[in-house]
Design a protein around this nucleic acid. Structure first.
Lengths: 332, 332
DNA sequence: CTTGCGTGTGAAATCGATTTCTGCAACGCT
DNA sequence: AGCGTTGCAGAAATCGATTTCACACGCAAG
């Protein structure tokens, strides 16, 4: 690893001049050429650690997500990575595992490593972003909102999406529609359940809170919640599941119980991974994960570059669709 | 952010002493206490960038994988992360997208950022690890082998796994068994196909290379390959698919064509994501992704800590099983 | 009573870049 | 001719830690 001093010596100039050549300030063409030749000759690339120490921020951004094994978040990560790479930044992916303590550790690391900014899908409503805000680091909340903090956010309309999914079930003629939503301390879970309530009321149906199940946002959570709902004395005839993985679990239980989506209605918030399992006729609220990631990264990079306008919340559109996939239709 | 100088001033000692307190060398109890109190008072945490610059290596390791949206690799990432976190290291996840150029950029970044080590699932046989090796950085190859380089590796036995999967189909009585494997410049793809050939020969069947399809390791690749095989004048009566995502694609095509796993045999290398789609009776070669990640990280951390024994290749066991999942049995 | 060794500590060098400060030279203007 | 700009480039300070070096002190052996 050649250093700036070796390049300077070979080019016969001072290290300051070498630095200037690579950072765009005024250097005569003559010396610039000497420096560039020397740099090529020595295969010089600036040491990022030294640069970070001096500049007080690195070309790295942190992406903190609650579940790395959820395709929604990996897809989001993909979007972040695309935008970041294009701008010469790298992305550190931090898996908080829905654990506020782990999340806090990662936030500390982001600060101590002088990372340029943080994109975070908060583990819970209690997530503490102050270590970042108090040092005015760039932060963008994604998927889960800013909780009244003065920061940028990229979201979908969870309430409207929950309502749209439920409305589709109502339109199908189902009358006892259950809801499987996420942990009660997670904002998206609350809003999607609110959408479910909205749609029931709009559809002239009673809101029966015994048909509302809270679960973790994973496959096993969906399974447990579905079992719980089916075991009720007066079970639902349709269910709205508030995320992709819980839908997978719920559908597994549904099939195991010998039920089909002919007789039992099912709507999901979020695309089922690999479109697997999704029965034809099922309603899906598509969440544009990759676009959310890309948008969040673009906003963050803007802040890093100095944009200091007021905080913005961008709400991306959910597409609602009935699954036309015939591949599995005959299977069901 | 308090610095070491502020702590030193408050404690009435030199910065050197403060450093020594946190790095375990001899300091009198009296001064150590002064320093610790001052550090707590100022909420001091060492600046990692400065430390990295001086020590020439950071507490960060890079994990370079070819497809972040493949659950196999996220599961592997999870294993890496578990082991790394426990040792106080963070993980930078780099998605090479099966692209050798992107991969090379990430390798350069790992060097320039003074990362402690790299775990890599190489994008192809042509991946160039020399920037790391020439600077004697710790490297562990995972999933895809060391190609004759003198480095540690964590693998599964791809050839044996491919043979086991195919043998199960042979035992079922299928006689024209096709194979959908990965890109021809990827080692695992070659070995799994070799296993397929082995099993056919052992089973007394002819090896018909027209029944071998190469595809990218993704869902669309599996779909295309399956279509190609079914369109043959003399199509196969069973297929071995060499990874998880291609299996998903292949099964989609199979179902769409109105075929079931009663009449058409199917075996997969790698667990299908979320056990979705997997028909009962289907043979699956389980790949212990998370354990592979954990093992690789443990080895890497050992090297970083100074272990300089000869390179080791660890081969983890594949469990072969017939899918007993009844959940979808009635569905098919 | 010296010589010598180990231990604790501070001063200063170091890691490799960026950036401020400073000086020099050329140029234009009165 | 004299004076202020302007532009380029080197010297040196800086970022915040770690580590080497040097010194002082205490205690044991000769």
């Amino acid at each position: 690893m050649a250093t700036i001093y070796e390049v300077a010596r070979l080019a016969g100039v001072s290290p300051a001049t070498v630095s200037r050549v690579f950072n765009g300030t005024s250097v005569s063409d003559e010396k610039a050429k000497l420096v560039r030749d020397a740099a090529v000759h020595l295969a010089y690339t600036p040491n990022r650690t030294a640069r970070t120490l001096r500049r007080q921020h690195s070309e790295v951004i942190a992406l903190i997500i609650p579940d790395i094994e959820n395709p929604f978040f990996t897809s989001l990560a993909r979007g972040v990575e695309d935008a970041a790479r294009a701008a010469g930044y790298s992305v550190v992916l931090c898996n908080s595992d829905e654990d506020v303590t782990k999340e806090a550790q990662y936030i500390d690391i982001a600060v101590l490593e002088n990372m340029a900014g943080v994109i975070i899908a908060a583990a819970s409503d209690d997530s503490d972003l102050h270590p970042l805000l108090s040092r005015s680091r760039a932060v963008v909340a994604v998927d889960r909102g800013p909780h009244g903090l003065e920061i940028d956010a990229v979201m979908v309309d969870n309430r409207a999406g929950g309502a749209a999914a439920t409305t589709a079930l109502v339109a199908h003629g189902f009358t006892r529609i259950g809801c499987i939503t996420g942990p009660s301390d997670v904002e998206t879970a609350q809003h999607r359940a609110d959408g479910w309530r909205d749609a029931l009321r709009t559809g002239g149906l009673e809101v029966d809170e015994t048909l509302l199940a809270h679960a973790n946002y994973r496959v096993d959570g969906g399974r447990a919640a579905m079992q719980q709902l089916l075991a009720l004395a007066d079970p639902p005839d349709a269910v709205f599941a508030a995320n992709n993985l819980m839908s997978v679990g719920a559908l597994q239980v549904l099939y195991a119980a010998g039920l089909t989506t002919e007789s039992f209605g099912f709507a999901a918030f979020g695309d089922l991974p690999f479109a697997a399992l999704a029965p034809a006729g099922m309603t899906v609220v598509h969440v544009p994960a990759r676009a959310m990631g890309k948008t969040a990264a673009t906003m963050l990079l803007g802040r890093i570059a100095g944009d200091d306008g007021p905080p913005r919340t961008v709400v991306l559109r959910n597409e609602v669709s009935v699954n036309p996939e015939q591949a599995l239709a005959h299977v069901i």
